[in-house]
Computed example of a mutant assay.
Amino acid sequence: MRIILLRHGQSLGNVDELAYCRIPDHSLPLTEVGERQAREAGPRVKRLLDGERVAVYVSPYVRTRSTLRHLDLGGQAERTVAEPRLREQDWGNLQDPVQQEVLKHQRHAFGHFFFRLPNGESGADVDDRLAAFLTDLEARMREPGHPATALVVSHGLTIRLLCRRLFGWSIELFESLSNLDTCEDRVLANAGGEWRLDRPFDQWRASPDGEAQGPIG
């Protein structure tokens, strides 16, 4: 079994933080750069598939669905499921620009995992819904006829937390990891009942508890 994790292409929110103040997070579109990134990621994803069928699970946000469309997987995508549990962390409706900056500083000081956004989610909330998604996904992938590979098109923090949950990484390690770049991927492979990550995430600091990413390879 394999899971290919792909972050969406560059979105309007990645280049204009004030966009979150006037456009709902789920409606933020890709930029022209993001569309190009997604088109360029298409051949890379197809090489990873090497002709295999794939089941696609995609966050229902506009930027993730647009990324998937620009990949142009054609008939290789046997099934496509818009999965709300793969959405980005909910910051709570339209954001006020002043409060947005205050919350970012508070979140950094408090810790990204436990800090609860007013009217939104904590990282722990996202972790909980991803645990349920992973349980369902692993069960589906063992069903007869389900492709051996799943493509998950999602968001930066969501992908980090999905790996944290799957590998049982510590919260300290999770908070030390950087998001994937836009349209960057990671591949998770299961052989002999053990999941392995093809290559580590970038880290902006060593984990305070000394834990390292793994297993890798």
Rank of each mutant, 00 (worst) to 15 (best):
L134A: 10
T135R: 09
D136M: 09
L137C: 07
A139F: 03
R140H: 09
R140P: 00
M141V: 01
M141E: 03
P144N: 08
P144W: 00
G145N: 15
H146C: 14
H146I: 14
P147A: 15
P147L: 09
A148P: 07
T149F: 15
A150M: 09
L151K: 00
V152L: 05
V152D: 04
V153Y: 01
S154N: 10
H155F: 11
G156F: 13
G156R: 06
G156H: 11
T158K: 00
I159W: 05
L161Y: 09
R164Y: 11
R165E: 13
L166E: 12
W169L: 07
W169K: 04
W169P: 04
I171C: 15
L173K: 03
L173R: 02
F174H: 10
E175N: 05
E175D: 09
S176G: 03
S176I: 10
S176T: 04
L177D: 07
S178N: 12
S178F: 07
L180K: 06
L180N: 04
D181I: 02
D181P: 01
T182N: 11
C183H: 01
C183K: 00
E184H: 08
D185Y: 14
R186H: 15
R186D: 06
V187C: 13
V187D: 10
V187A: 14
L188E: 01
A189H: 08
A191P: 02
G192N: 05
W195V: 02
R196L: 05
R196Q: 04
L197S: 03
L197D: 05
